[in-house]
Design a protein around this nucleic acid. Structure first.
Length: 272
DNA sequence: CTATGGACCTGAATGC
DNA sequence: TGCATTCAGGTCCATA
């Protein structure tokens, strides 16, 4: 479910409300992708200093020390509120604080909650190192983007999903950005000309900013930590539209599989 | 080093 | 209705 805009929407929906709260208890449900990395009891008594985001990870900074990395995987979502009902079968982490309970709901359990001393310490370092530049907030530059693509032999779609060049672009937004830029997902990254790389750079920024402004996509079941749904589905140009007419030229949208993931594109608007 | 495929897990939608 | 198959927003890891 969650790509960068959804994760950022989630962060904004509870960061302010949880900051300054004192942790009273933590509890785990079924195993997530990785073990927490510390006993739940070790968290009690600490204070939440703030919530940051890096790629698709949420970083919950603790005082006097420690950080919780939270990843939503494919099906995760977060709730933060007071007086939450008892955990259900897909609620796998609760952080009970003086200002409310943070709850990770994740049916497929590809998500994770991981504790580290700080973001440079294991296991956080390993998860965060190797992540590319943040696409929003001014660090993402067209020239550097083009240069980075130059030594990637893989298809551009795969390079975007890998997150080593730029983070946060998942399957939906990769498809949408490539459509906006008029680029076939199968085109090898190093073959992008500077003008096409520039277009893709702009498209990535635009599609992510737009989704963020609209509160995150909701192709299936996304909602933020206050239970509100997003609206991106209204704007999808190609994702999940196989066989339907391109909104720009009417040609049927095609679906192909790359790296065992679906790619959608318009054969006329997007050129190899 | 790259490229590929499998792994993790559950639920919804589709097909016979 | 029941049962099997396919697909889903992610990403790590083993293998060649």
């Amino acid at each position: 479910m969650p790509e960068l805009p959804e994760v950022e929407v989630t962060r904004r929906s509870f960061a302010g409300r949880i900051s300054g709260a004192r942790i009273q208890a933590a509890r785990l449900g079924k195993p997530l992708r990785w073990p927490l990395g510390c006993p739940c009891e070790d968290l009690t008594g600490r204070t939440v200093a703030g919530v940051r985001r890096r790629g698709k990870y949420l970083l919950i900074d603790l005082k006097p020390s420690g950080v919780l990395l939270l990843h939503l995987g494919m099906s995760g979502s977060v709730l933060f509120d007071q007086g939450l009902p008892p955990p259900g079968r897909h609620d796998h982490f609760d952080l009970v604080t003086t200002q409310g309970t943070l709850r990770l709901h994740d049916p497929r359990r590809f998500g994770a909650v991981v504790y580290a001393q700080d973001e440079g310490a294991e296991p956080a370092r390993k998860l965060l190192s190797g992540l590319g530049v943040e696409p929003l907030g001014g660090q993402f530059e067209a020239q550097a983007f083009h240069r980075a693509l130059k030594d990637k032999k893989a298809a551009i779609k795969q390079v975007l999903l890998a997150g080593q060049v730029v983070v946060g672009v998942g399957n939906i937004y990769a498809c949408e950005a490539l459509f906006m830029a008029g680029i076939r997902p199968t085109l090898r990254a190093y073959r992008l000309s500077r003008p096409r790389a520039d277009r893709l750079h702009a498209a990535i920024c635009q599609v992510l900013e737009q989704a963020l402004a609209q509160g995150g996509s909701t192709l299936r079941d996304f909602s933020n930590a206050m239970g509100q749904a997003g609206h991106f589905q209204l704007a999808a140009q190609v994702y999940d539209r196989a066989g339907q007419p391109c909104r720009r030229c009417q040609a049927p949208i095609r679906r192909i599989v790359q790296q065992q993931r679906s790619s959608y594109f318009c054969p006329d608007c997007q050129r190899p």
